[in-house]
């Protein structure tokens, strides 16, 4: 058991940014905080300031107005940063891929390391993605 979870040495602080989603992914990311899923047992804390965060969770279909903001948040994060794209919209555009205001998938603009597909993904899947991101923070 100890060996299995030895990557949980650093407690990653997470920032989430909604780039134009439908709130579905947003809610499921928030739900990971609540008693049933309780992501804090891995030391994960949701932070609002990008300067304190190790992991950036991006949800929603990226619209043209949000691109600048997203890049700004990404550039403000300290090094050894990992980006997680949560939900089909962030990965490919999902049902909004044909919308006129869609600025392309998130990985076209900033490097993404972990993809969590689903519409929306279950909180368990998001936690799994976070653990993968955690491992990356450590390896780097």
């Amino acid at each position: 058991m100890k060996k299995k979870h030895n990557y949980v040495k650093k407690s990653p602080w997470v920032i989430d940014y909604d780039v134009g989603g439908c709130n579905g992914c947003n809610l499921e990311v928030l739900a990971t905080l609540t008693p049933r899923y309780d992501v804090e047992r891995f030391g994960v804390v949701y932070k609002s300031s990008p300067k304190n965060a190790d992991v950036l969770i991006v949800q929603g279909c990226l619209n043209k107005k949000a691109v600048k903001r997203l890049k700004k948040i990404y550039s403000q994060m300290a090094e050894k940063k990992v980006v997680m794209a949560v939900g089909s919209c962030a990965i490919t555009g999902g049902p909004f891929a044909e919308a006129y205001n869609f600025a392309g998938p998130v990985d076209k603009h900033i490097p993404v390391s972990v993809y969590v597909p689903g519409c929306p993904p279950r909180p368990e899947a998001i936690i799994d993605g976070l653990l993968k991101a955690l491992r990356m923070v450590k390896e780097e």
Binding site: V19, G20, N63, K65, A66, P95, F96, A99, Y100, N101
Partner: peptide, 11 residues
């Protein structure tokens, strides 16, 4: 506003 505008009516 407009940070989550997608253009659903058009879709």
């Amino acid at each position: 506003l407009g940070y989550t505008h997608k253009g659903v009516e058009g879709l």
